[in-house]
């Protein structure tokens, strides 16, 4: 239920943003993190970014997910 994954913000359009979540481009709502900028990493839960996160750690986690997938 409370599953959330890190993703990179690509483009911002008002209250929405395009993100790259493990290679998939999706549109999410950023009302809860209005200060987010392109290039930031966010934690995404059910189509909303709920927190801006540390870039370095996010990349590590994404690497880990990739390793799992392989």
């Amino acid at each position: 239920m409370c599953v959330a994954v890190p993703a990179k913000v690509i483009k911002i359009n008002g209250n929405n943003a395009e993100i790259n979540s493990m290679g998939v481009i999706i549109n999410i709502d950023i009302s809860l993190v209005p200060d987010v900028a392109p290039g930031d990493f966010v934690i995404v839960h059910a189509g909303f970014a709920i927190q801006i996160i540390d870039n370095e750690e996010a990349q590590k986690t994404l690497e880990m997910f990739k390793n799992y997938a392989e």
């Binding site: 239920m1 409370c2 709502d29 009302s31 809860l32 839960h45 059910a46 909303f48 709920i50």
Partner: peptide, 13 residues
């Protein structure tokens, strides 16, 4: 609308 504090802000928005 179900869930704890992770989901409630989404509903609020």
């Amino acid at each position: 609308a179900i869930g704890f504090e992770t989901t409630a802000p989404l509903t609020a928005a």
